[in-house]
Write a protein that binds this DNA or RNA. Structure first.
Lengths: 337, 337
DNA sequence: ACTTGGCACTCAGGACCCAGGAGTGCCAGG
DNA sequence: CCTGGCACTCCTGGGTCCTGAGTGCCAAGT
């Protein structure tokens, strides 16, 4: 149905349109790429491609531009992932090395991705539920109030204040801290809820009300509250020209954590780079944008996702290369720390 | 030099221009505001105001628009701070109540300010150096690596990994932790450096190399690294119409923590709401924006600053009201937690 | 000394037209 | 199935004209 040349034509159209942002016509196609056929032939091919829904012409007698479906075919069949140049790879390393802590890693990653791709970068914080408890700390604030600090093996630190039903003494805190650390240390956060359920037996009855308050906050923090933050960078890379309806709705969507989470979540599994093109995503207001994303994590488990967001008119092969490379490096960095 | 009517004219021009975004002429002025003089009179006044540099006309034979200097006079002399409506005040309360932790407070504040003013909101994290140490925690990651967690009385938690010169045992960690907490608890962070300098005497000589590593990281984290983050929200409120040279440079500036810090820092002292208008700020790329900012904090000390950023054509009285009110509420919230 | 009405002047913006050019679809011939 | 030719479409940019809002200035009025 689509012979090789037609596919080549589609590829050429996508590439030209991506680089020039102007509808591409049969004439310019044949001399920019060295297809050795005449423009007329190309026109016939284009007619077919248009009929099939891969390209459209914005106005009669203008060149063609790819549809979302066209980009989809391009990404799936006509292009691979473009590896980074060695200079870029070096840049990644030097940029990420020397990050202080998890926050810093995430912030640097976002900047890096944005710079590398000249798009908007989106990085999700490593998921809590997939990591394990490294340490629990209780710090008295007042006699009826504690600060609970929870440290995970991905270097993430969660904090919450706990209001207690009654006053608590220093030694009770010490005891409680010991119990918590003994029982939770090394546990996957996803298991914590069930472990905590058994804890009340291990504290003296007198302490139970206070302990219970602490326990419920722990469960709440770790399990119920998937706070899974996303940070965004490089919004300045959005060019008004690409968004007819104004940047506004895009910027709005970018500030909605929930929206971004859903978007990142939608897109496929770990380890492979997935692409969500234009209307394929469900988020109103990002209908003209594409997302290139992948998972990252330590070893073989995926902790979270990251990616770049840009106009559908995006250099997919390069973006995919950058996303994949950055994800790998970040995984390494996290594994080391 | 500027009689009352001329000032009234300037005020009217500012108000009209802010609400319509169109140059305002003598005719429309007289009937929108009930100045009981003729347009011609107003024209004379406008000529004077223009001569003094308070207003300009974009093209010959268009109305006048205020200059930065005009806004300055308006803010300083011609308008007060407009108090929030009670509905808005209630909104603030319900919005900020129930924040989980410091991060949450800051994030909510930023959203709140952005919504309230329909501008870009900018909130600085409570400064480290002005708060005091509540607790220091050391968690072993490997035998030569520790996670240092530092909790301040503003509820902020700082974390850093420490690479040790040699292996360290559980009991050494315990001892070190005890020393640290004993010496640092309750200290202002600004004093920490000097206190830490005396610490090596209090650990056994064997431990010193490891302890020294920890100490230096502490100093580095708290003193040298003024990481003072700023978060930004409501970028979607930037309307392209207001920025002839494109949003791009504004968005870029907004992503530069350093730039924002400098901007916030520039603007005056605690407790009073300060306004920086257009070219009054030094940041290239924000020459067309104004900043309305104030300090916030617990009790009488200022911990950090917050504000809103928008086009010079901004509703200053309202923005100032919102900024002041939000700063107060945030201060309260922080004091309670 | 201000204020006012009148008047001529300026100029941005919209409507309109026109020509140029890029691109197309179609067809007949190789 | 490819190709050159041809008529057609219609977007784009430039030029012209007109209108309306707004101005500055001046002479007369209070």
């Amino acid at each position: 149905m689509l012979d090789d040349r037609k596919l080549a034509v589609l590829r050429a159209i996508v590439e030209d349109f991506v680089s020039t942002n102007e509808p591409v016509g049969s004439k310019s196609l044949v001399d920019r790429h060295n297809l050795d056929v005449s423009p007329a032939t190309i026109r016939n091919d284009m007619a077919v491609l248009e009929e099939q829904g891969f390209i459209v012409q914005p106005h009669t007698s203008a060149g063609r531009i790819p549809t979302d479906q066209g980009y989809r075919l391009f990404v799936d069949k006509l292009s691979g992932i473009k590896p980074l140049s060695s200079a870029e790879r070096r840049a990644i390393e030097t940029f990420l090395i020397g990050a202080y802590d998890l926050d810093d890693v995430v912030m640097r990653t976002v900047r890096l991705l944005a710079q590398l791709t000249r798009q908007v970068a989106v990085v999700q914080y490593p998921s809590l539920t997939k990591s394990a408890v490294r340490h629990v700390e209780l710090v008295p604030l007042t006699d009826k109030r504690l600060l609970l600090v929870l440290i995970t093996d991905t270097g993430r630190v969660e904090q919450r204040t706990v209001d207690l039903p009654g006053p608590i003494g220093e030694e009770s805190i010490t005891q409680l801290r010991a119990v918590l650390n003994a029982c939770l240390d090394g546990r996957k956060l996803s298991d914590v809820a069930s472990v905590v359920a058994e804890l009340p037996e291990r504290v003296t009855p007198v302490e139970r009300p206070n302990a219970a308050a602490v326990f419920s906050v722990i469960v709440e923090t770790l399990v119920e509250r998937h706070e899974e933050r996303v940070i965004v960078g490089g919004a300045a890379n959005l060019t008004p020209a690409d968004f007819s309806r104004g940047l506004r709705e895009v910027l709005e969507a970018l500030e909605e954590q929930v929206v971004l989470m859903r978007l990142l979540g939608e897109s496929g599994d770990h380890a492979t780079v997935t692409v969500l093109i234009g209307s394929e995503n469900e988020v109103q207001g990002l209908r003209n944008t594409s997302l290139v994303a992948t998972g990252y994590g330590t070893g073989d488990q995926s902790l979270a996702r990251l990616g770049v967001l840009g106009p559908t008119r995006m250099d997919y092969p390069t973006a995919m290369g950058a996303v994949r490379a950055v994800a790998r490096y970040v995984g390494q960095i996290l594994a080391e720390s």
